[in-house]
Amino acid sequence: MTDLTLYTNPMSRGRIARWMLEEVGADYETVVVEFGGDPALLPVNPMGKVPAIVHAGTTITECAAICAYLADAFPDAGLAPPVAERAAYYRWLFFAAGPLEQAVVSNSLGWKPEDKQQALVGFGTYDRTIDTLEQAVEGAGDGWLTGERFTAADLYVGAHLGWGTMFGSIPKRDAFVRFVERTAARPAAQRANALDDALMPQASD
C-alpha cells in the first residue's frame, strides 16, 4: 500500500500527471476511471474530471497544480527551482494552464474573440499566444524555460506542445518540434507513456 493514488484515464490529461509522478520517482497506485462521472472519481473530484491525486489524505486536482505540488512534495527530484528563482517557472507553468489551453481550445472550437473581446479573455488571441510561447521556447535554446535545469514547467509545456502538434491544434513550428523531442526523450516520459499505453485496452473495455 502507498499513500499516493493517481485517478486517471489513459486517453486524458492524466498522462501528464503520470509523467510527473514518474519524474519524481513516487511510489503510487493507479485507479483508472471512465469518462462521464465515474462513481469511483466523484468523491475525489465532484467535477468528475481527471487527473486527480490523493496524497496522504490530501486531494489535488488540475494538472498544473498537480505538477507544482509534486515538485514541492518530492524536492529531491529537483523539478522546482529554489523559491527565489521561480519567476519564470511559475510564469510558464501557468501560462500553459491558462492562456495556452484557453487559446487552443477556443481556436479548435472555431471561436475567435473580436477586437473588443480580446481584453476580456485570458489569452487575447490564438496567434499572439502561440507566438509568445514560440519566443520562450526558442529563447531557451539548449536549456530549458527556467534555465539549465528541466522543471515541472518544461514538463507541462512539453506535454501541451506534444499533444497539440500531434493533433494539429498547435502548429508544428521548428522550436516546438525540437522541444517536444527533447522532453519526450526523457526516461520518465517514456516510462509513463508505456504504462498508459498498456492501459488503453482496459479503458476501452
Rank of each mutant, 00 (worst) to 15 (best):
P39H: 14
H55I: 12
T2P: 00
A26K: 03
I130S: 02
D205N: 11
K112G: 00
D142L: 07
T125I: 01
A198C: 07
T5E: 05
A153Y: 05
N193F: 12
G143P: 14
A194M: 08
A87L: 14
Y7H: 08
V31T: 12
G57D: 14
A175W: 14
A189G: 06
Q135S: 12
P187D: 04
V180T: 10
V54Y: 10
V157N: 13
F176G: 07
I170A: 01
W111V: 14
R91L: 13
P51A: 09
I130T: 01
A188G: 05
G78D: 09
V32D: 04
L70Y: 07
T59M: 08
V83Q: 11
T146Q: 09
G139I: 08
T132L: 04
L120T: 08
L199C: 04
G162W: 12
S108H: 06
D205K: 11
M200S: 02
K116L: 07
A97Q: 07
L155Y: 04
P82W: 10
A152I: 05
G141V: 12
T30K: 01
V33H: 05
H160E: 00
I60F: 07
R91A: 12
E62N: 02
A103T: 01
T61R: 09
L41H: 03
V105I: 13
H160S: 12
V32L: 10
